[in-house]
């Protein structure tokens, strides 16, 4: 039978299908393992009562003093925290940058190790050592108060003060020697405000004389606007501009042209 003869032969798409199944299985397994590994036991119920400055000092000495010193005076492994203020503590702890996983070009963002109450207690203790920038008032984080004009102004301020490092679309970008400006999409309003106010790591400080609290709120509103209004052109390829777009067109655009040319000139069997 003519049709029976086919049994010994694989379908032409069999290898592609096998490859796809393998990739999906490997990716799925990796994602599942990652989810389990990153699963965080929720500790909030145990600490729901308000913590005092003394509790903050205890937490600091247990978790931060190895590098920053018992009295936050700094050691050769970590800077002094005298005068950095509660805003700095909230940013560093609640974005997971501190405690630092390892010494490197810069601390990386990850899941926070502490609850908001624990972080606040440590922040209050650090602020009690010397005056420093305070956590922002709710008023300056409420972007619903920003008018359309303020939103446009936020865009102007963002392009003048932030876009050179963080990218026009807030997608982040590279700096020198392994340092980088992180992407800003989806970042908590308080953390954006505190980053401007305190200048974490190599980011410059933008104090209230440079960018007033109202203006900081406008910048946050603009970033929210970027979050809510994705790229008009469809896939933004990371919004990294000519690098990712060029890579895409050179590999897939020209690669596609080559493939079509090969198909056009090949002999049908």
């Amino acid at each position: 039978m003519a049709t029976r003869k086919k049994t010994g032969r694989r379908h032409p798409l069999a290898s592609t299908a096998l490859l796809l199944i393998g990739l999906v299985a490997a990716g799925g397994a990796s994602a599942a393992v990652g989810t389990i590994a990153n699963a965080n036991p929720a500790p909030e119920s145990a600490y729901s009562q308000s913590l005092t400055v003394e509790d903050g000092a205890e937490l600091f000495r247990a978790n931060c003093a190895t590098c920053h010193g018992m009295n936050a005076q700094g050691t050769q492994n970590g800077t002094s925290l005298i005068g950095v203020g509660a805003a700095s503590v909230n940013f560093q702890v609640m974005t997971g940058r501190m405690p630092m996983a390892f010494q490197g070009p810069q601390a990386l963002k990850r899941d926070p190790m502490f609850t908001q109450e624990q972080s606040d207690a440590m922040g209050d203790w650090v602020a009690s050592l010397a005056p420093g920038p305070e956590r922002p008032a709710e008023e300056w984080l409420d972007t619903s108060q920003v008018s359309d004009e303020g939103l446009a102004n936020g865009g102007v301020l963002f392009r003048i003060n932030c876009a050179m490092c963080h990218n026009l679309a807030g997608a982040g970008g590279a700096l020198t020697e392994g340092k980088f400006a992180p992407p800003l999409n989806g970042v908590d309003a308080a953390h954006i405000y505190e980053a401007m106010l305190t200048g974490p790591q190599n980011m410059p400080v933008f104090n209230d004389a440079n960018i007033a609290p109202e203006q900081k709120r406008e910048i946050i509103a603009y970033l929210r606007y970027l979050d809510d209004n994705p790229s008009v052109g469809g896939f933004d390829l990371g919004a990294l501009g000519p690098v990712s777009e060029g890579l895409f067109i050179w590999i897939f655009g020209l690669g596609g042209l080559v493939a079509v040319t090969v198909w056009l000139t090949s002999k049908p069997n």
């Binding site: 050179m164 970008g173 700096l175 200048g199 190599n202 980011m203 410059p204």
Partner: peptide, 15 residues
């Protein structure tokens, strides 16, 4: 425009 200022190294990077 050179404006990528790193406040700890005091380096200015041109993008």
């Amino acid at each position: 425009p050179v404006a990528l200022y790193e406040q700890q190294t005091h380096h200015l990077l041109c993008p």
